[in-house]
Amino acid sequence: MSEHVLETERSGGLRGISDVLWRNPRLVIFLLLAPPALWLGIVYLGSLFALLAQSFFSIDEFSGLIQYELTLKTYRELFTPANFDIIVRTVVMSACVTIAAAIIAFPIAYFAARYAKGKWKALFYIGVMLPLWSSYLVKVYSWKLILAKEGILNWLFETLHLSWLLNAYLSIPVIGGNSLSVSATGTFLVFLYVWLPFMVLPIQASLERVPASMLEASGDLGASPRQTFRHVLLPLALPGVIAGSIFTFSLTLGDYIIPQIVGTSRRFIGQAVYSYQGTAGNIPLAAAFAVVPIVIMAFYLWVAKRKGAFDAL
């Protein structure tokens, strides 16, 4: 048995470092936070700021060179009919994808949070996460095959003698097209599929924090299941729905690959940014386009906060 109650003789080496850290909890926090703070501060926020700065420059129409003078000229360009059309199309698509994702994700998340136990819970996580393990491009191309005129969906409609229904749908302007794979509906379906896990998981996390007794209390006080959903479950799950919608909304706002592979030739913001900063060499306009999703998201969060979406946090 040691003679000392306090084991002073065992210090030294790495133990000494441990002792120093134990005595300085602030130092530990500093050491843990410094690398991510540097990463976030310099690389991430820095590039964001550079982007913002670029959008206030303009391009000389004749020489194609960037003029480094602060101006709102580039932003004015966003409101030309052609460009504004791109913004409206992207925002409408993002909103549709977000709303549809929330409607589909809620029952899945509710089942997982409330009823799934053990094996079923594992199955749920695998089912939701599995699509995230495979390459995004492969998934999008698979969807192109599914939605194509020679694809399985068309075959299914033919087999069920429902081709007339599909054709009637595809003949609707704006959302229709030659086949699903070259229609706005196709783009919507692929967006919905690809971003759905980002909606399911936050909703599930928020529902998991609602104790069963709270729903029982609502029923106990006379509320029908519909009223309980409206007055208790939805308000308590709202932070999760908002978190999920931030993902689906902003991911759709910024994506430039899916609409390029599946959908019409009409462009989305991501595609506009991609082409302006690349072949067109119009970095200021590309930057101005890239600012649009940031402004929309900031506005969206501001409204959500004012409406009390985060009160249950």
Partner: peptide
């Protein structure tokens, strides 16, 4: 008869007050 149609009320062990 579902709970919301019973003229019976409950005080829960965890109180189950609505946090929002």
């Amino acid at each position: 008869v579902p709970p919301y149609k019973r003229h019976v009320n409950t005080v829960f062990q965890d109180y189950a007050l609505f946090p929002h």
